[in-house]
Design a protein around this nucleic acid. Sequence first.
RNA 1: UGGGGCGUCGUCAAGUGGUAAGACACCAGGUUUUGAUCCUGGCAUUCGCAGGUUCGAAUCCUGCCGCCCCAACCA
Length: 770
Amino acid sequence: MSDSPSLPSTAVAKPTHFLADIVASDQAAGRYEGQVVTRFPPEPNGYLHIGHAKAICTSFILGQSFGGRCHLRFDDTNPETESDEFVRSIQGDVRWLGFDWGEHLYFASDFFETMFELAIDLIERGLAYVDSQSGEEIRSNRGTVTQAGTHSPFRDRSVAENLELFHKMRAGDFANGAHVLRAKGDMAAANMKLRDPLLYRIRNTPHHRQGAKWCIYPMYDFAHPLEDALEGVTHSICTLEFENNRDIYDWVIDNVDQSRLKTQPKQYEFARLNIGYTVMSKRMLRQLVEKGHVAGWDDPRMPTIAGMRRRGIRPQAVRHFVERVGLAKANSQVDAELLDGSIRDDLNFEAPRVMCVTDPLSVEIRNLPEGQVEWLDASYWPHDVPKTGSRQVPFTRNLAIEREDFAEVPPKKWRRLSPGAEVRLRYGFFIRCEEVIKGPDGKIEKLICSYDPKTRGGDSADGRKVQGTLHWVSADKGVPCELRVYDRLFRVENPGADRDFLEDLNPENLRVTHGIIEPAAASSAGLEEQRFQFERQGYYWADPVDSSKDALVFNRIVGLKSSWSKPALKTPAKPKAQSKPKKQKVGKRPELSPELAAAAAALQALGAPKADAEILVSEATLAPWFTGAVAAGATPKTASSLVVNELRRAAGDTPLDALVCTPEQLAELCGLLDAGKISSKGGKAILAVLVEKGGSASALMAELGLEQISDPAVLRPMVEKVLADNQANVDAYRGGQKGLRGFFVGQAIRATGGKGDPKVLQALLTELLG
RNA sequence: UGGGGCGUCGUCAAGUGGUAAGACACCAGGUUUUGAUCCUGGCAUUCGCAGGUUCGAAUCCUGCCGCCCCAACCA
């Protein structure tokens, strides 16, 4: 679009999901003059969460990758819950994710005047009326899912009266709820949303952007399509629960004054994101904050964008996660592990490795004199991260190691420290534990160790091996710090499924410890959003709110994956593959009514198989095709099969009694099929043309070149060539990979230009492949 | 219950009549001064179930089963 050069469209890879298919085909068909405009339309009444991130990424990337754009629009049509605070936080969150709406920032409220005019126009054309029923009356007169609603007694008010009332509504002459504006829909519609949907309601409440200008506000179903159309949106993407609203969306677009609309957008729905062990609903998130279960909307345990940001997750990780999750229409719940994995993948190449002991146990190096400092060079990066850089780490007499890295009685396969054992201190020396000092309560207070000066850097001169490598920090030179280790917010995968969701809260979703960090890391913590990997512990960064130079506070962003856990604490793995119940009860096929049964029997008498006959009588337009074709000489079985299995699909949206072809033409096609002149595939190709244009089946066969080749002598060399050209697959097939059969059939059919008789081809293949 | 959707590996998800992609998880080996990373290999004879059509069906037809959404003056 010429007026919007703001979004670089080249950098974004094209997605491959179903919405991308729709956009691509719209562009190919030249709809919207090839333009693609999407929008992200949050209501400013809460903070954005990771579910919104999916919607944001989807809409922005879809727009950008097809050379279009994506708008940010605030759907602020309900003044009672909305505020500027949310407008600001949402903008910040979208920007943080890396998206830019350029000049295309909109507010539904900026369109209020236009919407009002459009509503007036609807009233003038008799398509909307002012209803003065109470809310309760409106509800009860709407009917139920199985019963039609009843018309409002006010439905037939004159245009003049409607106009007058609506203007008075706007003027503030009425109390909340006194009147509403409704569209004249269909009170008997199966889709409840179409039963005279509400367009406007009275709300004597000031609006966060419009002030006291309005006291009537448009409803979502009226406002949303208009916002889209007024902005020039082409593809309006939302979540599955709006599927039922699509009909009104279209109604509004179709019935409103067309000259005011920039585009005629269409709505498409995708499945919202769900993740295990957390909640995503605004209501539940608000409760967590308001009841103090978390410290705020940006608490690092929250699935909010603000929470993730404060936790230290980078937007790149979120975007990668959304990409991995995919996009479809099936309700689903993503494994929480996928998010963690995405965060680790991102940080693995971003975070320099440093050492921090999160739960210190004192170690005294007996043979290193007090005051002596061995400075050791330590790389910031492991061998497989292509980055360079290192720092000096002090090794002194008093050290700290992780309390859980020592076991007085080591379990099997223990690769850490234990009495008498030797381990390597990373980048440092080998040490051996010689003495364990306990306090009066029996708790281990200190380990007395010796170090081997000849192992400086971590390699022994004599080639002796050590059972493991531990991270450590000099207690003399290290810096104390607070560590906040976050775990899953909830202890069950589906919070609230069996009880109040608050009872499912994980009591250990935050563990605070006091540790010690090496000096080099301490001095760069908090600088330029510095993230670290604390070796063998996880990824951390300084909390942006609570950490300071004098009092370091680190958030654990995500732990490292570990294939080791203490046997006693080993978390029970997910219940292993409880394979689904293979059998399920099969339902009964409903009985045919006596009339239909008689009709079916008559068709059976004509030669139709029983199952086909029952289907043929199920729709009035179906049976004539069968009887007509049989009357024209078609074999009953072929005719019924064609009508039942193929005709309707080939007809598409065209009613069967409006097709241009005739039962006689169908009969001719049956004859070709029966005579083996064409394959079933060729028959379908002909049928597709027949329903569109009609004509002679045999003429079409000649025209389309579909006449079947059935002579084995002609086909054999072609099949032989296919096998010769695919020797590797032949070997694999003979080696037992029988699935390749389909590959050969496909190849053989292609080799014959689609004309080879599949039956003969199959026989040849059987013979030649053995 | 009427209507609208959706069922493909433990979890997501491609595939629309011709070899059941890929990712995460998992398992087994290898590298490793992080029990991490990385590398290699394995991981759906079968697509909710049952019939039918077809040389050939996850894909077409019929029926059934299961889950989600809709009866706010919320969005």
